[in-house]
Design a binder for these strands. Sequence first.
DNA 1: ATGGTCGGCAACCGA
Length: 255
Amino acid sequence: MIIATFNANSLRMRIETVLQWLEKNKPDILCVQETKVQDEDFPTDAFEACGYEYAFKGQKKYNGVALFSRDAISEVSFGLDSKPQDEARIITAMIGDITVVNTYIPQGVSPDSDKFTYKLEWFKRLRGYFERNFSPDEPVIWLGDMNVALDERDVHNPEGLLGHVCYCPEVWQAFKDVSQWGFEDVFRNQCQEGAHYTFWDYRAGALQKNRGWRLDYIMATKPLAARCTRCWIDKQPRMTIKPSDHTFLAAEFDL
DNA sequence: ATGGTCGGCAACCGA
C-alpha cells in the first residue's frame, strides 16, 4: 500500500502535475493540501477518468484539502471537532481499515502574530481530536504539510532560522505533543541523516541553492509504522511540469 | 542582501 502527500499550492494550476504523478507512481492514496479551490469549482472532470475516488473541502482563496484513493473512501469528515472547525485544513476518511487524516497546519506568519498562537492552539486541538476519536492501537496515518521542521537535520540553516514560526521550540513542543499520542515519523524511521527537504521557498532561488525545509510528513501509529518498507521524497515534479514549492512525499506499507 | 516569487483574484493577503 502506497500513500503520498503533496502541497499543491493551487490544485487547478497543478492538475497535470498531480495526474502525471498518479499515473507514474500509482499510489493507493494521495493527500493534497492548499488546493485553493472552492468546492463548486473543484476540477472533478479532470479526475473522473484517472481511476481514483476523491473527497475534498475547500474555501475561497486559501487552504483546502483533498484526498484521492484507488479503493473506496468512507466516513469522510472535515474540520476539527472543536471550534473553530477550520474545515478546509483537515479531512479525515476511512480507506479499508486505515484511518487517514490529511492536515494543512496553519503556518503562523510570525512569532508575535495571533496566527502563531492559533497555530499552537491548532496542534493542541488536534491532539484532543486524536484522543477523542481514535486509539494509537488502530491503524491511523496522519500526514500533510505540518509547517514544522523538527530538528537541525530538517532545515538548511538551523542557526539562522531558529525562531522562525516553522523552526522554534514552541512548535517543536506543539508537534511532539500531538505525535506522542502515538505516531512515528516514517521518513525518519527509514533515513536518519539530514538534508532531505520537501519545501523550497519560491522567493530566494532556494531550490537552486538547496535552501530547503522538511515540512511534510507521513506519521503512522505503531502497528502501521512497523510495516513501513520505504519512504521517499520525489523531487522530480518539483523540477519539471508545473513546479510547486513542495515535493511529493510517499511511503509504502507491507499490509 | 529582512529581499525575493508565486497564486487567488482583482487590492492585497498568505506562504
